[in-house]
């Protein structure tokens, strides 16, 4: 890595536009993700947060705009270059996405076996180290179907860090977990960020957990960045939309009611 790049953001997103059918997902989004920090992308369900991660990973193409990762324009890369870049990215899927026909051990060993020619004894050491880091060394012989949601996500995390990536993307890491598992995942994300000196990107709508561990937050809605800044600034923001989202208020700029005709007239109209 050249000296000049180190102060630049790891990921730069400029003028991102993306439509799915008639629905506009992104309408000119600009985001910078600094190196070595925990950056969160927040927003209500269906705002395309996961879509954004897929664009960073090169699985989806935007209709306009640019995504640059470590100085490389993801959309302009050839297949081989894109795969080389992906080896330096870790991604934690919401479902874990573990391979269901392999044990926990083999799942964590999978990227090592696919991409390195390391002897089996060294792979064993690496897998046990990664599993120890997420606290599941004792669960190595279990099948994914025998794991709880929280455990599956921790195994997936061990697999995501198997190749010592430069960055890790977390897709809704807190959703659907009990408080203890949630606490464990929060702790792990922070610890891994510091210990491995990786760049972490969290996509989430869990305000409490996300504000607790992130250094910087972008809030997306309706295809636009509604606000960004350190967690404290956003929590105290006066902008009505950001306030409603961060404090979880049921009514505000986003109305409680789905758009409908006048209530009284609707009741009196009768069927047909």
């Amino acid at each position: 890595m050249s000296q000049g790049r180190e102060n630049q953001p790891l990921i730069e997103i400029r003028g991102l536009r993306f439509k799915r059918g008639a629905r506009v997902i992104f309408d000119g989004v600009d985001i910078d993700i600094p190196r070595g920090k925990v950056t969160a992308i927040m927003g209500p369900s269906g705002t395309g947060k996961t879509t954004l991660l897929r664009m960073i990973g090169g699985q989806l193409r935007p209709q306009a705009g640019r995504v640059t990762v470590d100085g490389q324009d993801v959309q302009a890369l050839r297949r081989g270059e894109l795969y080389a870049l992906r080896k330096r990215m870790g991604m934690l899927f919401q479902s874990g996405a573990l391979l269901t026909d392999l044990t926990v051990y083999d799942n964590v060993a999978f990227p090592l076996r696919e991409h390195t020619k390391l002897p089996e004894s060294m792979i064993r050491d690496l897998v046990l180290m990664k599993l120890q880091a997420v606290g599941l060394r004792g669960a190595r012989d279990l099948m994914p179907s025998e794991l709880s949601g929280g455990m599956a996500r921790r195994v997936a995390l061990a697999r995501a860090i198997a190749l010592d990536p430069m960055m890790i993307m977390y897709d809704e890491p807190f959703t659907g977990l009990d408080p203890i598992s949630k606490g464990a995942v929060v702790e792990l994300i922070r610890k891994i960020n510091v210990a491995l000196e990786v760049t972490s990107i969290i996509v989430s709508h869990d305000v409490r957990e996300t504000t607790a561990i992130s250094d910087y937050i972008y809030v997306l809605s309706d295809g636009k960045v509604m606000g960004h800044g350190p967690p404290r600034t956003l929590l105290e923001s006066d902008a009505p939309w950001v306030r409603q989202f961060m404090q979880g208020l049921p009514d505000g700029p986003v109305p409680f009611h789905y758009p409908a005709s006048d209530y009284a007239a609707d009741l009196l109209a009768g069927p047909g």
């Binding site: 992906r86 391979l99 991409h115």
Partner: peptide, 20 residues
């Protein structure tokens, strides 16, 4: 495997599911 994101997960691990 597709529905449970296993194929997508492989792609993100730089493993081509068509080949693997």
């Amino acid at each position: 495997m597709k529905a449970t994101e296993q194929l997508s997960g492989m792609e993100m691990m730089a493993v081509d599911p068509l080949r693997r």
